[in-house]
């Protein structure tokens, strides 16, 4: 990169008087970063930002996707506030987030600490935990649905072998959400483990040596050295996991389809249903905007908190 720029600068020098050439070179240097981010900006604008603006526009319309949009004003938003199913889907999403985020982070941290030691085959074990994340969520969802299948699934077969009864994992409203949460743990733990593993490896060994000299036990080393130094990673994971939980769709779509009843209908599930089953693209967009605002607020709070904690460190 440097060589190329030098060459260009020399070329400029030959053609222009000295100070103008220098100014041109400075301008160029300022321009170069924009050239590098341009493809990303163009793609982001086309496929994320413009659709986002368009979704906001559509949320004020009645649109079946295959016909022409009709102006509705704020009707979709007043309907949303009064729609018990929207609130139920939001509640389901919150319960799902609360049951999967702390647990998947805690298990991820435990695994990371276990695999941070010299163990035989640790690369293999790390890969095994990470694997569900790189496989398509539809495939993991299908496998999870088979495992939880109450008639021929492996989990119920194991329960029967142990002399226990079958459980209607995916067709009992009380069990469906826990089953989804367990399947989510299987997928998400690997990601949390890898991030924590990287963070653990960046903690200098001298802190532990100093702690040992001061006579700190294993537990107090974790409490006073490891955990505080992992704070930036913890904040990052918290934001990413919460956003992921609010956007969960594929796993639910494959495993339960939002049922039984509405017990596993998440916000994105309801958005999809409104958009493609009942052809209410305007209402679906209004819910999309609401979800956008929720995630935005949460991200802002977390971001502030993480910056404060970083400056406190």
């Amino acid at each position: 990169m440097g060589g190329l720029m030098d060459g260009d600068a020399n070329h400029g020098k030959a053609a222009l008087p000295g100070h103008r050439a220098r100014r041109w070179a400075v301008q160029r240097q300022k321009l170069i970063p924009y050239v590098f981010i341009a493809p990303n900006i163009v793609l982001f604008t086309t496929f994320s930002f413009l659709p986002l603006i368009y979704a906001f526009y559509i949320s004020f319309h009645d649109w079946s996707l295959i016909g022409d949009p009709e102006w509705l004003g704020i009707h979709n938003y007043t309907r949303l506030v009064r729609d018990p199913l929207f609130w139920q889907s939001l509640r389901n999403t919150l319960v799902y987030a609360l049951s999967t985020v702390p647990t998947s982070m805690a298990i991820g941290l435990l695994l990371a600490m276990a695999l941070n030691r010299r163990l035989p085959g640790r690369t293999f074990i790390r890969s095994v935990y990470f694997l569900p994340l790189v496989v398509s969520a539809v495939a993991t969802g299908t496998i999870a649905a088979w495992m939880f299948n109450e008639n021929y699934g492996v989990i119920n077969a194991a329960l029967v072998q142990l002399g226990l009864g079958r459980i209607s994992w995916l067709s009992n409203p009380a069990w469906a959400l826990p089953s989804l949460a367990v399947a989510t743990l299987w997928v998400r733990v690997g990601f949390n483990m890898v991030v924590y593993l990287a963070a653990l490896q960046s903690i200098p060994a001298v802190y532990y040596e100093a702690a040992k000299i001061d006579g700190a036990s294993g537990l107090s080393q974790f409490r006073h050295v490891t955990f505080p130094l992992l704070a930036p990673a913890t904040f990052l994971l918290l934001i990413l996991n919460v956003i992921h939980s609010f956007q969960v769709f594929d796993l639910v779509y494959v495993m339960t389809g939002g049922g039984p009843g509405f017990s596993t209908t998440m916000v994105v599930q309801y958005i999809f249903k409104s958009a493609f089953v009942t052809s209410e693209m305007g209402y679906a967009s209004a819910m999309g905007v609401a979800l956008y605002l929720i995630i935005l607020v949460f991200t802002a709070i977390q971001w502030r908190a993480s910056r404060q904690s970083e400056s406190a460190l």
């Binding site: 109450e150 008639n151 039984p260």
Partner: peptide, 21 residues
Amino acid sequence: VPPSTSVKSSEQPQNLFANGT
């Protein structure tokens, strides 16, 4: 009927017939 064969379920009932459930 198996509880998993409700309207919204992802169960494929033809599997349950084929395997004698």
